[in-house]
């Protein structure tokens, strides 16, 4: 089984692919950060592995698509999970749709925004705080039964949203953390997709209309954090 292929070196983990029990598998191995104190490093690593595994399984039971979890190996700081051989990040999807599909850009992105907003809302209803919501941490995979050809990847109707990288995730019921989670998403979306200034608002609309539970408090937390950022004096 252990025939590892390095897929990518991220900011805090190396990603390998392999075949584990006959399934295409992604191994996420966190590595030591020598710039930080060894005690801090090992406690951050252990805590994040635990939270990552916990949040993935909680998403599963809430009906939110994530990679399946296969194995957690604390000794080697590894998590084994399902590898999607056929996928595209939401970031690349948006860029591609804009490039190749000028005519119905907006309806495509509206549908996508609705799916993202509802999925994030579902996570929050289940007290799952993703912690790093960006368009790179969301994948689109072909729906079951959809054939994979070039046009598949340009039509949101063919695709399912999968949330990935729960490396900064944790479980918390507080409205503040949910507000901050939305703020992180807003910042990521507006800085990465600055050619679509409306995208985050569309996501937020879907988030709001999916459920009203605790909504006022969460949105007021979001506005609070937004104000802290935007009103901050730029002196010194």
């Amino acid at each position: 089984m252990e025939e590892l292929k390095m897929l990518k070196q991220g900011a805090e983990a190396k990603l390998f692919t392999c075949n584990y029990l006959g399934k295409p598998t992604l191994i996420k191995e966190r590595f030591v950060k020598t710039y930080r104190h060894p005690d801090l490093d090992s406690s951050i690593t252990t805590e994040r592995i635990k939270n990552e595994a916990r949040c993935i399984s909680r998403c599963k039971s809430a009906g939110i698509k994530t990679p399946n979890l296969y194995l957690v190996d604390f000794d080697r700081s590894r998590i084994y999970m399902e590898y999607f051989t056929n996928s595209i990040t939401v970031k690349d999807f948006i860029i591609n749709v804009v490039k190749k599909h000028a005519s119905d850009n907006f309806s495509q992105l509206n549908v996508l925004a609705k799916i993202i907003g509802e999925t994030v809302r579902k996570m929050h209803i289940n007290d799952i705080i993703h912690g790093d919501l960006t368009s790179s941490n969301m994948l689109l995979i072909p729906k079951v039964g959809i054939l994979d050809n070039d046009s598949t990847w340009l039509n949101i109707a063919n695709l399912d949203l999968v949330m990935i990288d729960f490396g900064l995730s944790f479980i918390d019921g507080s409205t503040e953390d949910k507000g901050v989670d939305l703020y992180v998403l807003e910042r990521a979306i507006t800085s990465t997709h600055n050619d679509f200034p409306d995208l985050f608002n569309k996501i937020l609309e879907a988030y709001k209309s999916y459920s009203k539970d605790n909504l006022k408090e969460i949105i007021s937390q979001l506005e609070d954090v937004q104000a802290r950022g935007r009103k901050r004096t730029m002196v010194g």
């Binding site: 104190h37 005690d39 801090l40 406690s43 951050i44 912690g131 790093d132 919501l133 960006t134 900064l168 901050v180 989670d181 703020y183 992180v184 910042r187 990521a188």
Partner: peptide, 13 residues
């Protein structure tokens, strides 16, 4: 002597 303090990173914030 190192004391573990609250460590607060949220995405890039």
């Amino acid at each position: 002597k190192y004391l573990r303090l609250p460590y607060c990173v949220k995405g890039m914030d």
